[in-house]
Design a protein around this nucleic acid. Structure first.
Length: 483
DNA sequence: ATGTGC
């Protein structure tokens, strides 16, 4: 561990401003000592560089699942004054609005145990996965523009889902500042065939089971729609596909030159490329990024609809019998304008969350009415071997601009994991554990081995101990379509 | 994460 690190409490460490010249604020990492020890030293270097961004307020933050990423750590949170500060694509990530949605069925494990293979195989044929694969819809470029203006709302208007769904999506599935005039023809060309597709890497669609012993707060779980032992859940983890990736790549290139040439911003890492939020560059990226956020909301909505159809076809049950209500849909990679209390004063901030989940507490605007007593659901995608968590926001997140963890966090690079593990063997091993996996890429499967990730239970414990979010239920996989 | 490279 970095020797300049100051231990503030058992679950909070600080890199002082004096660590490097140019830091405007200290950097803070929320984690237990064991997770701190396991963190790549690049996390501390990256986070102290983030602390140099113009306009950054209070602290550059890292969540307990942090690991090094492009410019910013994954698990990084940076709140920036939009009047004086910048927007940085590296603080959002290449997969803009990579996120997770969770669906609660009325079914229990025993009712589907003989059909898991059929359900997975049928969803695997209906929902494309893999690099460069097309989606459920193929849109014309103008139709794509409509889709990214409307987000999940557009999908529901087209018949993919219900008005109820929208109430249970962060921002109701639609960012208002999306403007496709800031999106290049190339990004549109890449995106228009990918509406309703999983993608690759750690993206997946998973069938999960909640066991009674894994429900940690039964009253809160019931509010979220989990009320019986063995209840079957569906989790969807995907983002904005080639559309968001193209937007991120293009603006990163544009910002690298604009940052030095036009804005004279000097930072030690070009991966922190940024532009003033109040500039044409900054505003163009913000408009395009919001289009990508909406693309991902729309994408997850289409995939959920397909999953509902497959369950209905295979199990011969009506939507009412199936339930399949949306618990919630969260973003893991965004920058959003939010109002926060800073030293007793209300302040509008551009909150960058990269591999971090919004964690709005019970009383805050934006939490669905039905969850008013519990707070915002926080969805933690674990590895496909070890399971995932449904959490709820906790009061301590007022210290992190209302942010918390998003997943396990890798401990092993993809290339390293591919060397050590074999996809076909992993598939067999998982079958032995009662998890049926379909994949379009065996080498991709190997990269997602549970051993390549941090212990999700420990990540959840640390975020609870740090007061950021608290566990409601653990979700155990029984079937998985890995992108 | 990604039509898996500048």
């Amino acid at each position: 561990m970095l020797h300049q690190l100051k231990k503030i409490s058992d679950y909070l460490f600080e890199i002082p401003k004096s660590y490097k010249p140019g830091m405007r604020v200290p950097a803070r990492i929320y984690a237990g000592e064991d997770l701190m020890d396991g963190m790549d030293s690049a996390v501390f270097e990256q986070l102290s560089n983030v602390a140099m961004l113009p306009g950054i307020v209070k602290y550059a933050l890292c969540m307990p699942d942090g690991h090094s990423g492009y410019g910013f750590p994954i698990g990084g949170v940076a709140a920036i004054d939009p009047e004086t500060g910048v927007i940085s694509p590296g603080g959002i990530g290449f997969d803009i609005n990579c996120g997770v949605r969770l669906i609660a069925t009325n079914l229990v494990f025993d009712e589907i145990k003989n059909n898991v293979k059929r359900l997975v195989d049928t969803m695997f044929t209906r929902i494309n996965s893999g690099v460069g694969k097309g989606g459920i819809l193929s849109l014309t470029s103008p139709a794509l523009d409509d889709a990214v203006i409307g987000g999940a709302e557009w999908a529901v208007e087209k018949g993919y889902g219900t008005a109820r769904d929208l109430e249970y999506i962060e921002e109701k599935g639609r960012m208002k500042d999306a403007d496709p005039s800031a999106v290049s023809p190339r990004a549109k060309e890449r995106g228009r065939g990918q509406a309703g597709s999983l993608g690759s890497g750690n993206h997946y669609l998973e069938i999960q089971v909640v066991r009674k012993e894994n429900i940690f707060d039964p009253a809160a779980a019931e509010k979220f729609g989990i009320f019986r032992d063995g209840q079957v859940m569906i989790m969807i983890h995907t983002g904005s596909r080639g559309y968001g990736h193209e937007i991120a790549s293009e603006y990163l290139r544009r910002f690298v030159t604009a940052m030095q040439g036009r804005y004279h911003i000097n930072l030690p890492d070009r991966e922190l490329a940024c532009a003033p939020f109040n500039s044409k560059d900054g505003q163009d990226y913000f408009k395009a990024m919001n289009c990508a956020i909406n693309f991902a909301f729309m994408n997850r909505q289409l995939i959920m609809h397909a999953a509902r159809e497959v369950f209905s076809d295979i199990l011969k049950k009506s939507p009412d019998e199936l339930g399949m209500n949306l618990v919630y849909d969260v973003c893991h990679n965004t920058a959003k304008i939010e109002t926060h209390q800073i030293d007793g004063k209300k302040m509008k901030l551009l909150v960058h969350r990269k591999g971090a989940t919004r964690s709005f507490t019970a009383e805050m605007k934006g939490v669905p009415e039905a969850y008013r007593e519990v707070g915002q659901p926080v969805l933690i995608g674990g590895s496909m071997e070890t399971g995932s968590y449904l959490m709820a926001a906790a009061e301590g997140s007022s210290k992190t601009f209302y942010s918390t963890v998003h997943g396990s966090g890798r401990v092993m690079s993809r290339s390293q994991a591919k060397k050590i593990f074999r996809g076909i063997e992993l598939q067999k091993k998982m079958m032995g554990k009662g998890i049926y996996v379909q994949t379009s890429s065996m080498s991709g499967l190997a990269e997602e081995s549970g051993a390549a990730y941090k212990n999700v239970d420990r990540v959840v414990q640390c975020s609870e101990a740090a007061g950021l979010s608290r566990p409601i239920a653990k979700l155990i996989p029984i079937g998985n379509i890995k992108g």
